[in-house]
Design a protein around this nucleic acid. Structure first.
Length: 426
RNA sequence: GUGGACGUAGCUCAGUUCGGUAGAGCCCUGGACUGUGGAUCCAGUCGUCGCGGGUUCAAAUCCCGUCGUCCACCCCA
């Protein structure tokens, strides 16, 4: 109907309204996720949706696609440059420092869930406002933290009934060995610049590692000629990567080693991982993360190891559809209170109101005929209907209809709650 | 940011080739059945055919622009 007005206001490109019954699926998703996070000992941190632009420039990285061309950045009325968060980790790191969280505990397990914003070209499973769940484990230097983070991500997916996904792992080295490898790549690539695509020539300057996961044929061939990063890792990183994989094996997680896996953000070190769904198209990354031992120090905090990941809830929900997981319905209607005539309507209204202290109850609000009410009762799939007409009004004994069998019983008002409770198995 | 497909009722879509007064199914509402739903049958509501402009006696249909969605790239969640 809104279409009639010309010049009507539309939702912003890349945003959407999640309507019922779709919104029930989101509630289910979040509830299941919070449950798993609770089992792993994580607590929620709720931060602002926008931050000083500088936070992302410094942390996410000046040269990254996100900072270069995907941020919603604007000036507030005082002329400060602010940015709608494109990812969650920088805010968590900032809060950890600003609120002194590490002074209270050596290990922090924090999760967040909510909207992120990136100015990208929309596609199925990719929106400009999208929902992410992130889990950060702060203060743990060892590979057990890495493995636990992967495990947590996998458990989130399994809890939702998903099984058709693949875990990919790699190591991107530490502050010591990564620069060595970057130098090596530059040396190797400098002779082959003409064989690289335009993007990769730019990557060559900014972050040569990212040439490794370019999909252009020529670049792939060039990349093949470069020894994998694993061969350039320092002894510590190399052994940690082996231990990381061993830990995954210990808890029965299968994974693929992917030397081309290079995360797009500057702050990652050592362990990196991504999880892709096997049945999704190009937008198949369900989540990814890794270790970021330098980030908190970069923001002016104490040197602090940390590992974490972010998962895309939109795509996870797409996977849930793809794998045809049965999402349990929202609370079904338990009782429909119907009136035979106008005379019974008041009583129905009062009865419905009081039954709602215990049951999910529907009652007609439009003054419709009994037949119409029964149709409505049927279409909301109620278990029972209570029918009130002249007889019931004068006797105080109501007619209760079992909507599955069609059988009816007479139940006095004072016994009604107990009767329904019993029949509903509550 | 690049290339391509598509936009018709709340939903799924036909009609566009070759211009001629907007259709179907589902949903919704009412009735057949005036104290009873699910099956069946009958009837009814909803559209300025995404928006704006152009060509034409006449445009859902042809042309241009624009907005949006989808696919691939890019990037990733």
């Amino acid at each position: 109907m809104g279409k009639k007005e010309k010049g009507r206001i539309q939702s912003i490109r890349g945003t959407r309204d999640i309507l019922p019954p779709e919104s029930d699926r989101w509630l289910w998703l979040e509830e299941r996720c919070r449950c798993v996070l609770g089992r792993f000992g994580y607590s929620e941190i709720r931060g602002p949706l926008f931050e000083h632009t500088e936070l992302f420039q410094k942390g996410t990285g000046e040269g990254t696609d996100i900072v270069l061309k995907q941020m919603y950045t604007f000036q507030d009325r005082a002329g400060r440059s602010l940015t709608l968060r494109p990812e969650g980790t920088p805010s968590v790191a900032r809060a950890v420092i600003e609120r002194g969280l590490l002074k209270r505990a050596k290990v922090l397990k924090l999760y967040y869930i909510g909207p992120m914003f990136r100015y990208d070209r929309p596609q199925a499973g990719r929106y400009r406002q999208f929902d992410q769940l992130g889990a950060e484990l702060v203060g743990v230097p060892g590979v057990e933290g890495d493995a636990e983070s992967v495990h947590l991500h996998v458990m989130l997916l399994r809890e939702l009934g998903l099984s058709q996904f693949t875990v990919k792992v790699n190591s991107v080295g530490c502050s010591k060995c990564r620069p060595t490898y970057s130098r090596l790549m530059r040396e190797r690539l400098s002779d082959e610049l003409e064989n690289l695509c335009e993007d990769c020539r730019e990557r060559f300057e900014r972050n040569p590692l990212r040439v490794l996961d370019c999909k252009v044929k020529g670049c792939k061939e060039v990349a093949q000629g470069v020894p994998p990063i694993l061969e350039s890792l320092c002894d510590e990183c190399r052994s940690q990567f082996e231990e990381f994989k061993a830990r995954l094996g210990l808890i029965g997680l299968s994974f693929q080693e992917d030397p081309g896996l290079v995360r797009g953000l500057d702050y990652y070190t050592k362990a990196a991982f991504e999880i892709h769904h096997d049945l999704l198209g190009a937008q198949s990354a369900l989540g990814g993360g890794g270790r970021y031992d330098g980030l908190i120090e970069l923001y002016g905090g104490p040197p602090t190891p940390a590992v974490g990941f972010a998962a895309g809830l939109d795509r996870i929900l797409l996977s849930v559809e793809k794998e045809e997981v049965a999402v349990p319905p929202a609370l079904p209607v338990e009782v429909y209170v119907a009136s035979v005539s106008q005379a019974g309507r008041e009583k129905c209204f009062v009865l419905a109101s009081s039954l709602r202290e215990k049951f999910r109850v529907e009652v007609d609000l439009l003054g419709r005929s009994l037949q119409a009410q029964m149709k409505a009762a049927n279409s909301v799939a109620t278990r029972f209907s209570v029918i009130i007409g002249e007889e019931e009004l004068s006797s105080g004994i109501y007619t209760v209809r079992d909507m599955e069998s069609g059988e009816q019983e007479k139940v006095p008002e004072q016994d009604l709650r107990e009767y329904l409770r019993r029949r509903l198995g509550l």
